[in-house]
């Protein structure tokens, strides 16, 4: 039985993340899931774009690709189609996936492309020192929103659900078991599998918005979230200001590759080229 440790490129440590960053919690949960599933390292490909979260693949002992800003899903699409045997996982930050990569996000989900996307949402562009992203809540501060953010943020899970993904779930760095559970589901199912993981960025987002240190931010993630199944039983006024976590979509609709394979069968009369 493999251990989480076995999937790390330990010689690439230390990682670049700041003390107290929530991304490591996600990586830990991902590795534990890999160990539990006892995956063959050679069959896993992890792709990222640009940003703090996108440094993650470098630490993992899989086939790994660190691409251009926002484009990870497009590179991953090419990899998956060229070699469908590979389990392709994209890890991204919120700026990477929802701003510059927003177009690729909605279309990968719409195609129900056989890719797992894990978006580490820390509400900020961390690598460039704290500019606001499409996931920065309204009126919060950032270096490019010194008077408060004017824009509204996405409900990312609703967005991806609307695009037609087979699986949509959200957890936070304060809920590592949920992260593992959702990633396990995502890695063992076909089609577009989306897991949003809310993480804390004490260095830029937390400090500028006076949200306290890592501990306070983790506590706040814990206190301000509610499981969607529990939320369903509460009146709307009790949900004010709460972030819902949980599994929002669990479908097994035909994926892009299902349809592609069926098309090939149809046009070749079942004779594999």
């Amino acid at each position: 039985m493999a251990e989480a440790w076995d999937f790390l490129r330990t010689d690439k440590m230390p990682h670049i993340w700041c003390p107290g960053c929530g991304h490591g919690v996600m990586m830990n949960a991902l590795l534990r899931t890999m160990a539990k599933l006892d995956v063959n390292k050679d069959d896993i490909c992890v792709v990222s774009g640009i940003g703090c979260a996108s440094r993650l693949p470098g630490y993992l002992d899989f086939n790994t690709l660190h691409t251009t800003h926002g484009r990870a899903l497009a590179f991953a699409t090419g990899i998956k189609l060229a070699n469908p045997r590979l389990k392709v996982i994209v890890v991204s930050g919120d700026g990477d996936a929802t701003a510059i990569g927003g177009n690729h996000l909605i279309h990968a989900a719409r195609r129900n492309m056989d890719i797992t996307l894990i978006c580490m949402n820390n509400n900020i562009y961390g690598m460039t020192n704290g500019q606001y992203s499409p996931m920065t809540p309204t009126s919060m501060l950032a270096t490019t929103a010194p008077y408060g953010n004017l824009e509204r943020n996405f409900d990312l899970c609703k967005l991806v659900e609307g695009c037609g993904a087979n699986y949509v779930a959200r957890a936070t760095a304060a809920h590592p078991r949920n992260i593992s559970q959702y990633i396990e589901y995502a890695l063992t199912h076909k089609g577009f599998q989306f897991v949003e993981v809310m993480t804390q960025c004490p260095t830029y987002y937390g400090r500028r918005n006076k949200l306290g240190g890592p501990v306070e931010m983790i506590n706040s993630l814990k206190q301000n979230t509610i499981l969607n199944t529990a939320a369903a039983k509460l009146p709307p006024e009790k949900l004010e200001g709460k972030i819902q976590i949980g599994e929002f979509v669990k479908k097994e609709e035909l994926t892009y590759l299902d349809r592609f394979d069926a098309m090939v069968d149809r046009i070749t009369g079942g004779v594999k080229p």
Partner: peptide, 18 residues
């Protein structure tokens, strides 16, 4: 693909997959 950028990215990914 959804745009020109994505199609360029996809061919690089596919080439890396052989």
């Amino acid at each position: 693909m959804e745009d020109e950028i994505a199609s360029m990215a996809a061919i690089v990914g596919a080439s890396l997959a052989g």
